[in-house]
Design a protein around this nucleic acid. Structure first.
Lengths: 147, 147
DNA sequence: AAACATTTTTTGGGTAGCCTAATCAGGTGA
DNA sequence: TCACCTGATTAGGCTACCCAAAAAATGTTT
């Protein structure tokens, strides 16, 4: 079995399904469509392709599940998402909505090395010199009310 | 101002043309193709669309130029590119090729706020506590040829 | 169970972006 | 001048991703 190609968009679908499963237990076409900001027919298209690639268990009108491999990819992507979002909010002081938006795109492109380095950097700053961070963030976080 | 929509890919074409113009003075289809890693016909397609949107001056077999608006967009994108690349290399200690790769994607998605905040953060760290940075980067910059 | 409501799927079609192969334009050397 | 070479363009076609409208299945209510 050769290395299957997965597009950025498919990665997003997997991530959406993963989050739905985690939060609601059930994965429905309607909800995927809402999260992905597309219409249901587009979701069905995506599901068929992902099923062919062995990333999703899908039979029409039946329940939708991620396979082990699909789940692995989704988790990997989602963990990048969380890390990037935290970095943007906690280190750079970006408002949550913007941080979310930026992370949501970058997570699909960022290299492993950069992810790891961001993790190390955030940890280093927060543990070794939290006061430096506090000083930088002063006046930045409260633009949205309170800290 | 028309409500023209510009795709990420078109932004990349503009940026490539901007860099070619800056470095070689002339913008040729062949060189754009090489930079964009596509074949010449794809470049011609892109040029036609960009010309329709008023971002490029293009008449077939004639010289290619960015319009003022095209140049403005390209410069804006390119400045994000430079900033992100510098951030990845100088603050996070990412190897140049990886930094380039990551910046090259993120530049098309990153919000203005995040760009500005990254600029401020880099400046803050480098000016106010360069020793902290030095400490973090110790041992990271020389790890070349690893994956 | 029948009627209605909701969800999912199919059908048919559209756009963006890329390609190969063939053709066209312009410069250059015999 | 003409034959050749390179670069640019057109023609035709492909895949990914999206949509609206209609049809099919499922869920719900009475």
């Amino acid at each position: 079995m050769r290395p299957l190609e997965i597009s950025k968009r498919e990665e997003e679908y997997l991530e959406a399904m993963y989050i739905l499963h985690k939060n609601k237990g059930v994965i429905r076409v309607k909800d995927i469509a809402k999260m992905m900001k597309v219409k249901p027919p587009s979701v069905v298209d995506a599901l068929k392709k992902l099923a062919e690639k062995g990333l999703v268990e899908y039979e029409k009108y039946d329940r939708i599940l991620l396979t082990e491999e699909g789940k692995r990819i989704a988790e990997e992507t989602y963990s990048k998402h969380l890390l990037l979002t935290r970095f943007f909010t906690d280190i750079l002081g970006i408002p949550p909505e913007i941080a979310e938006h930026d992370a949501c795109q970058f997570e699909h492109y960022v290299s492993k090395i950069t992810v790891e380095r961001i993790r190390e950097f955030a940890q280093f700053i927060q543990e070794e010199c939290p006061y430096v961070l506090k000083q930088f963030l002063k006046g930045k976080l409260e633009e949205k009310g309170k800290e």
